[in-house]
């Protein structure tokens, strides 16, 4: 195999990302204080999901890696969501 080219992420990108992540953290704190009732969990989890996608893409270099790694991560997320969904078929309809 030839040498895979290596992407070096500049420091300032990481700083921007950190600022964005901290902003999203406060965003999630804000949304649960909005009294959205049952939707506040959902809101907080949406913020968490966005944060985790940023961490996966930039900090964990998925954006710069080979596509099959992204496919695998997506696949694992899909399998896990399906398992939760099916488990809830029991508890939600019990």
């Amino acid at each position: 195999m030839e040498k895979e080219k290596h992407h070096i992420v500049p420091y300032k990108v990481y700083i921007y990302i950190l600022v964005a992540l901290i902003a999203l953290t406060f965003g999630s704190i804000g949304i649960v204080h909005l009294n959205l009732g049952g939707y506040s969990v959902l809101g907080a989890l949406v913020f968490s999901t966005v944060k985790s996608i940023i961490v996966l893409a930039i900090f964990m270099h998925l954006k710069f890696d080979q596509p099959f790694l992204r496919i695998m991560v997506g696949f694992v997320a899909l399998v896990f969501s399906a398992v939760i969904f099916i488990t809830f078929l029991d508890y939600y309809f019990r």
Binding site: I86, L89, D90, Y91, Y92, F93, R94
Partner: peptide, 11 residues
């Protein structure tokens, strides 16, 4: 085991 009907026929 007392699972819901929906879960039973899905499985």
């Amino acid at each position: 085991s007392g699972m819901s009907g929906t879960a039973q026929y899905t499985f």
